[in-house]
Design a protein around this nucleic acid. Structure first.
Lengths: 244, 244
DNA sequence: TGTACATCAGTGAACGCGCGTTCACTGATGTAC
DNA sequence: TGTACATCAGTGAACGCGCGTTCACTGATGTAC
């Protein structure tokens, strides 16, 4: 989406701004009614325009939803990328984990949109794949030079289909720029990630997002809420597991 | 909910059966339209009755939703409890993990209902707490006699609020029958779970549900799908982590 | 610099739809004597 | 065992609402000469 810019005509500037306002208002509505409750008419009403006018900006409700999903992935991706810029791998991994949690808590409905239950009847188009990969890529990149899992307690060889999947994914990541169109190519030109390390990283990712989902979706109510210390403790264990 | 029974009048039997049929049809609708799309009118239509008739069985749409949520928790709880009945702790833990995944894959929309994004505007009543605790309790009970975490690589002391929360939860679990009304009291009379073990168990639970959610909600598409071997590998690592 | 035409943004009415919930009612089932 | 009355299940019409999307239209902005 083009951002306002000096070299744009008044019409183009107005279009970029209104597109932005529509998405902003739609995000506000997510918080009230969730993804299924997102209503073009309600957005238009809040913006003081006819509902039919929105069709000049988004051809349908689903296209608006897709735009919100892409924005959410990119927003999370930016947050994680910029949190994990410096320090040793442990510091970077830790910062990235806290960035995911902080972003999710600050944007719970956008988090639910991308990591919660899928919206029934909605099928995410291919265009979401690149943005969706940004946050995970940061973690994989940090783990790339972790100690070989063989040296870590409990390390087990990859078996069956898992070995193939991990090898294929490692190969794809080495050429990430061509495979994940639109993703920042953090790994471009890098060494391949050892498949065992990759698997450990992805296991850690499921752990991370599992915790954040539990916290946000209310599974911790009455036990580990507030979850700050639980989270910090788990992240420390995770670092050991990944071998950083 | 009373099940049909010889000592019931015809009216009572009919009521129990229709209540069941309404819930069954509602579950079928979940699969098509999700929780927000669940419509009393659509259920009534499929059952060939007037929509107003449903109000003899459920005072509102939200009450029907609550009934489905409780059924889902109980269905998962039963599946996990009966999967983890015998063998050593490792075998029981492994079986319980696979039972969660199998149940989730067999009932994806009920899984989404209880572990996915909360339904906007719906607030779960207290009555769901007991059934919600059943599956987690099975895991905690298995982990109860795990090796003390001090003996496990990477074991770290519990810090700050986490230590308090874990101790409180351990105490509550020891008196689970009074605390978690309606839960099967697996832990009744048992020794207290060491807080550090409890925390490891809960971390493993977030890992487990994180993986299942990733798989069901489509985050593994194009990488670790089918996820059987990934899952098996992760469960093996998890057992080491918990100290079984 | 000014004019003619094309492009685009936004309007408001309309289509056809589904929803949750209420209410007065009919008819069947259950109960007390 | 039979009758009178109370309870309950189910009906169908109605209320009031919101939704996504289409369409012919007006008026403003941009462009080519």
């Amino acid at each position: 989406m083009a951002r306002p810019n000096a070299s744009m005509t008044a019409r183009e500037r107005a279009r970029a701004e209104l597109t932005r306002e529509i998405k902003d208002e739609a995000k506000r509505q997510l918080a009230v009614a969730g993804a299924d409750g997102l209503s073009l008419r309600a957005v238009a009403r809040k913006l003081g325009m006819a509902s039919s006018a929105l069709y000049r900006y988004f051809p349908s409700r689903d296209d608006l939803l897709t735009a919100l999903i892409i924005d959410a992935y990119n927003s999370l991706g930016t947050a994680v990328e910029s949190a994990a810029v410096d320090g040793d791998p442990r510091a970077r991994w830790t910062a990235a984990c806290w960035a995911v949690r902080a972003w999710a808590r600050a944007n719970p409905h956008e988090y639910a949109l991308i990591y919660g239950s899928p919206v029934p009847g909605y099928r995410a188009p291919q265009a979401t794949a690149g943005p969706a990969g940004r946050a995970p890529l940061v973690f994989i990149e940090i783990a790339r030079n972790a100690a070989p899992p063989g040296t870590v307690a409990g390390g087990a060889a990859l078996q069956g289909a898992l070995a193939d999947q991990a090898a294929k994914l490692a190969a794809a990541l080495a050429g990430a720029d061509t495979v994940l169109a639109g993703a920042d190519t953090v790994l471009a030109g890098a060494d391949r990630v050892p498949p065992a390390t990759l698997v450990r990283g992805v296991i850690a990712l499921t752990q991370l997002f599992g915790m954040v989902s539990f916290e946000l979706f209310g599974q911790f109510v009455g036990s580990f809420e507030p979850a700050d210390d639980f989270f910090g403790h788990a992240v420390a264990q995770m670092i050991t597991f990944v071998g950083l």
